[in-house]
Design a protein around this nucleic acid. Structure first.
Length: 604
DNA sequence: TTAGGGTTAG
């Protein structure tokens, strides 16, 4: 229904700006998704920002041209000014060819071009961008030897390099040193860099503290500074805090938000499925004449795909095309992933095959989605075929590729092949991550190799890897399903010792295990404990608990549980439903319960 | 002529 309305609406090609402001789709009888799409169609068109004309050196977009130009000017007599060289270095760096830019810088030094602080800063930036910050510091030493004075640009770049390498302690140490020894006065960029670093390590509060401090020290925060913190809060799902900061920025400080501010907020709202507010944000952008960017659209396409709403995602892409925003590989990767998540592999492959004709090159992310799709549909042979294609296409499988394949192989019981791929992954120099560990534990448990999983778990010992509730839940489930409930129970009690909080899945696994052992009283006790532990039972918990009761012909609390489910708008899954019907047929449950059961069956 | 913020994968 929503889609047909959408299609009809989208057919107003080119006329969308002429439609009355209150269009039929924004009325409340339409779903938030439709309203959201409608507001997209309504927002203002794109504008080119009028960049000033660039010199021959700055507008270089081709690496070969840059090298040819360098070879030419380096032979001129007299040599052109260092500014020309710097512009060339910078143009190459802007193309993300950092090592080439660095190579040119070294050539300059060799032939005796009098490099200045600008050249140094560009060279240091190149080192930092390649995560070779130590080399950047070596160049800082060269500055001192050449009597070139490092400035706020130099130090901001180095701080950024340290942050890129997650060297936060050294970042803070350098920043404090700069202030203490008055090596340079931090400006808004330097503060924003520091704030980014703090946010990156999860110190939002300290980041906000630094925001206050810079203001007190007379350095006015700008849009970038606020955007950095707002984005971090959104990523941490602290959307209300993000909005408070947003209000402060706009209404108290008079700092204008831009498309990046809105993208962060929209992304945060999408992650929480707060679609109505997303539509509101898009409307607000329109009112402020802030055009949605390719990224805005990509966030929406991805959010729809993750929600399984590929039709809406396709509608967003239609709107993009209509507005002459060219979808890129990121856009289509989301859509490929959306199809794969729904098991629609034919659609995914058709889209994949069409990418080349759109002038787009599939990347490892595209392949990872397809591998995941095939593995989830248990078509591991197709996945393997595709996996070999990755290297044939000149791409390098990454940790996600291997994790996906290993999970797929375990899923179809090919434990040996999974093991081989794990060894291959390490031989390729890839370091297994937390996901790899979880996939292997889960794979072993599901293939009835719980002992191996447990010995791996004990081998890893007390570490970050084993301080994860998901890992515990996998093992508790594995042990319990294999009849080792004592081990499951011991692991569950371990959680308190480790200070780990069971999550809703852990409880479900434990309740199911207790029921399997016939310990219904204990299961009920745990079930009742969930609310007071701040982890209220969800639909799955109720289903699991009901199944436990019904399997043991215990019908005492069934009606009460069904009523609670009704109050919480939860629904029955297929196995619980069939057990209920079975008990009614057997006469253990009253037929009058059928009406209530009917309301708990999902419509589709 | 040099530095900072937002999107995609299990």
């Amino acid at each position: 229904m929503i889609i047909s309305h959408l299609r009809a609406f989208i057919k107003f090609k080119g006329d969308s700006f002429l439609l009355p402001l209150q269009n039929p789709l924004s009325s409340s009888r339409f779903s938030p998704h439709a309203t959201l799409l409608a507001s997209l169609l309504h927002s203002n068109s794109f504008s080119n920002n009028g960049d000033p004309p660039l010199s021959r050196y700055q507008k270089l977009t081709n690496l070969d041209h840059a090298f040819n130009l360098f070879d030419e000017i380096i032979q001129r007599k007299p040599l052109p000014s260092v500014i020309k060289f710097n512009q060339l270095l910078n143009a190459v760096a802007k193309m993300n060819h950092f090592s080439s830019s660095l190579h040119l810088f070294k050539q300059m030094c060799v032939v005796g071009v009098p490099v200045d602080a600008y050249s140094m800063n560009i060279a240091i930036k190149c080192c930092c961008q390649m995560s070779r910050t130590n080399d950047g510091f070596a160049l800082l030493g060269c500055c001192f030897r050449r009597a070139l004075v490092p400035n706020v640009f130099t130090f901001s770049t180095l701080l950024d390099g340290l942050i890129r390498e997650d060297r936060i302690i050294e970042t803070e140490r350098l920043f404090k040193k700069l202030i203490k020894h008055k090596l340079c006065e931090p400006n808004v960029v330097m503060y924003s860099t520091m704030i980014k670093g703090l946010c990156k390590v999860g110190n939002n509060d300290i980041a906000i503290g630094l925001l206050r401090l810079m203001d007190e020290r007379g350095c006015k925060p700008n849009t970038v500074v606020y955007n950095t913190i707002i984005d971090s809060l959104c990523k941490d799902k602290l959307i209300d805090d993000a909005f408070n900061l947003f209000k402060e920025m706009v209404f108290h400080k008079g700092i204008p938000p831009n498309v990046i501010t809105y993208n962060s907020l929209i992304h945060g709202l999408c992650n929480l499925c707060r679609w109505e507010e997303v539509a509101k944000m898009l409307k607000e952008m329109e009112d402020l004449s802030i055009s949605p960017s390719l990224r805005t659209f990509n966030i929406l396409v991805d959010a729809f795909c993750k929600e399984g709403k590929v039709n809406e995602a396709e509608a967003v892409i239609d709107i993009m095309v209509e507005r002459r925003v060219v979808p890129d590989i990121v856009t289509y990767n989301s859509l490929v992933d959306g199809y794969c998540l729904r098991g629609e592999m034919t659609k995914a492959m058709t889209l994949f095959d069409s990418l080349t004709s759109k002038g787009l090159v599939p990347n490892v992310v595209t392949y990872n989605s397809l591998l995941n799709g095939y593995c989830k549909s248990l078509k591991v042979e197709e996945a393997m075929h595709m996996f070999h294609d990755i290297t044939r296409k000149g791409l390098k499988p990454d940790i996600v590729t291997y994790n996906t394949m290993i999970q797929g192989l375990f899923r179809v019981g090919c434990c040996g092949d999974a093991r081989k791929l794990f060894d291959e992954m390490r031989a390729q120099g890839l370091i297994p991550d937390e996901c790899t560990y979880r996939i292997i534990l889960d794979g072993l448990c599901n293939n009835r190799q719980v002992e191996e999983a447990l010995s791996l778990f004990h081998l890893v010992g007390d570490s970050k890897l084993n301080s994860n509730i998901v890992v515990y839940t996998i093992l508790i489930e594995g042990a319990s399903k294999c009849g080792k409930f004592d081990i499951a129970s011991a692991l569950f009690h371990d959680l308190t010792v480790k200070g780990l909080q069971p999550d809703v899945r852990t409880y479900a696994v434990m309740i199911s295990g207790l029921c399997r052992e016939g310990l219904l009283k204990e299961a009920k006790h745990l079930f009742c404990k969930m609310d007071e532990s701040g982890c209220p039972p969800n639909s799955v918990t109720y289903n699991v608990f009901l199944q436990g009761y019904l399997k043991h012909q215990n019908c005492d609390d069934v009606e009460m549980l069904l009523q609670e489910m009704d109050r919480r708008s939860y629904s029955l899954d297929a196995s619980t439903l069939s057990l209920l019907i079975h008990q009614i047929a057997a006469g253990s449950l009253d037929r009058s319960m059928l009406k209530l059961i009917g309301t708990l069956v999902p419509k589709n």
